[in-house]
Nucleic acid binder design. Structure first.
Lengths: 205, 205
DNA sequence: TGTACATCAGTGAACGCGCGTTCACTGATGTAC
DNA sequence: TGTACATCAGTGAACGCGCGTTCACTGATGTAC
């Protein structure tokens, strides 16, 4: 606890942290403002010094998550190096790695019902994060012959959906589902087969 | 309302229906036993004549959903007719169609946190439903040369993840996400590309 | 067909609980002189 | 360096609320004779 004083020090961060761990354990609607306050060793009323209320706290957690996520995706993409293909695959891996490393943030972002449009700031950072995937898809699609090239947004959407599905169904313990394979393998092979279907990976690799 | 008497007639079904519509609107944890009762025009206490409690009600909704789902998947698969490939694709379409047609059931089944292991009955029907996809995958994988054939459970998992991801991200209004494409198209093309990657569909079709 | 009675499916009042939010307050911190 | 005072970041009591659950009850239905 450290400083055991009247003043907390950095309650704001502690509340977000509490929110994240609760959201991770109990799901977005199972989370409680009072409990987050308790976990930070503080009265529920203190929360209102830093946030407008319950929703605002979750939105802040989501915002923070999108910022981390955006950076992770940008790092993984690395401006398309060493190759458009490798960079694209790296973003897929980064997606799953993020979901694993920051499950609370992931839930706040994608399962809490917080709208991306809630604030301009949130909208901006979320767009930036999700834009990386699309950028990667656009670059990669240059390698497909024009006539058989699907819209890049479409194939970004495919990869996003596949990644999200793997996270929801196999990376969490969800509905009593035993994962037959490690989620990383599942995503890796799934993306591999998909890219082969686009003619971007040689058939026998 | 029909019979406006002391006795409801079929409260049990009415409660499940109310549960489903609430769960669909508010999410699994936003659902309330009292509100479901209110929606059925009945005192909360009446619920206990038919269910053990809140959880039991949701579990019953999920059970009902799995039963419908299993049947839809089996119909779609149609014992592998007219071809293993066509039948496989049909199950993918059926998955999405089910999620669209029965959103409340879908949420109860996959987002409510109800474990498939909750009762033997639930486990049985859920296994049956999800087994169809695996059966379809096994049949289809016979058409892939042995040496480059991935485990059928793996590719069933890929298709399930892709379908689930499309539902969660693009078929619902979720996090302010505008779907750039109709979810049906997204899933259809996604599965198409994937199957091409497996060498099951000619490259130029 | 009529009556007595058991069973069934609801009521409604009550409970204890934890929630989100408000409010006047007070202790701690920072700053001006 | 010391003091006065403004500001900040918490407290704690209170509120009204809806929840899930229990209980003794009662009206409606079904059945035996």
């Amino acid at each position: 606890m450290g400083k055991r004083g009247y003043h907390h020090g950095n309650l704001r961060e502690a509340l977000v942290a509490g929110c994240l761990s609760l959201i991770e354990k109990r799901g977005p609607t199972g989370f409680t403002l009072s409990e987050a306050a308790r976990e930070a060793g503080v009265t529920p009323a203190a929360v209102y010094r830093h946030f407008e209320g319950r929703e605002d706290l979750i939105a802040d957690a989501a915002l923070q998550g999108y910022a981390i996520f955006a950076e992770a995706m940008e790092d993984a993409y690395a401006d398309g190096k060493p190759s458009d293909l490798a960079a694209f695959e790296a973003t897929g891996r980064a997606y799953l790695a993020f979901a694993n490393k920051y499950p609370g943030h992931y839930v706040a972002m994608f399962e809490s019902g917080i709208s991306i449009q809630r604030t301009p700031e949130l909208n901006k950072v979320a767009t930036r994060a999700l834009g990386v995937l699309e950028t990667a898809a656009v670059a990669l699609s240059q390698h497909i012959p024009v006539d058989k090239r699907p819209p890049p947004q479409m194939f970004a959407a495919h990869i996003w959906a596949l990644s999200h599905g793997v996270v929801e169904l196999f990376a969490r313990g969800s509905p009593g589902t035993k994962s037959p394979f490690p989620p990383e393998d599942l995503l890796e092979t799934g993306i591999g087969i998909y890219l082969r279907g686009l003619g971007l990976v040689p058939p026998d690799q």
